[in-house]
């Protein structure tokens, strides 16, 4: 499985964020997206998801345009944006259940409880998420990663609001996903130490381009 981006150009409003952007991502690879605030990191991620339409260029999944693949591509995709995409009136467990069911699979409540415990929400599964702290809400959203079957993770600033322990936990989760043959793209100002697998870096902004593979 490959994600290939050819000559991508994105314009928001009347400002060109980037153009001529090309890169490829294979299995067992992690792409770190860097760049100053406002350099178009989020726009690039949302374009890769298919939420935004690019001005020019192609995004190919296994050689086929993601527009053409449509729901087949979305089957492989897990996107976590700035918003946690959880409902404040539902409990952590209900939120996770709905999100995974909509993702197209049903791991069962036991697996969901285990995921919530593993992400550090033991004892909070049945609280309305309204009553949880910012970091805990983020953990509810991140619990999806633990039960996901999607190959491609696109994470926008996943470490925001997390405490030190949770940051380390999330780093391990991402590393394990990549090691197991997954792919991940993330924007962050945090380093993600990966034991194996390749880390690619892509810089947006003035010195745009793929940096040397680490």
């Amino acid at each position: 499985m490959t994600l290939q981006v050819n000559n991508l150009q994105c314009i928001r409003g009347d400002r060109e964020l980037f153009s001529g952007l090309s890169f490829a991502l294979q299995q067992k690879q992690l792409l770190m997206l860097e760049g100053a605030n406002g350099s178009g990191k989020t726009t690039l991620l949302r374009t890769l998801c298919g939420l935004y339409l690019q001005e020019q260029g192609d995004i190919l999944w296994d050689g086929v345009s993601i527009r053409k693949l449509d729901d087949q591509y979305r089957q492989e995709l897990l996107y976590l944006g700035h918003y946690n995409a959880i409902k404040m009136d539902l409990t952590a467990l209900e939120n996770l259940r709905i999100n995974t069911l909509l993702g197209g699979y049903n791991p069962g409540d036991n697996a969901l409880m285990q995921a919530l415990d593993a992400i550090g929400l033991f004892g909070f599964e049945d609280y309305p998420t309204r009553q949880l702290s910012q970091g805990q809400k983020r953990r509810v959203a991140l619990a999806r990663l633990l039960v996901s079957k999607q190959k491609l993770w696109i994470l926008d600033e996943p470490f925001v609001a997390l405490d030190v322990a949770a940051v380390e936990l999330l780093q391990n989760i991402i590393a394990a996903h990549v090691d197991a043959g997954g792919m991940a793209i993330l924007t962050t100002h945090q380093e993600v130490p990966l034991t194996t697998g390749a880390v690619k870096r892509l810089r947006l902004g003035e010195k745009q381009g793929v940096l040397a593979d680490a």
Binding site: D71, M88, G104
Partner: peptide, 12 residues
């Protein structure tokens, strides 16, 4: 709260 964009990204 971002759940709408998640609906758009589900394979349904």
């Amino acid at each position: 709260d971002g759940t709408l964009e998640q609906l758009l990204l589900t394979p349904h």
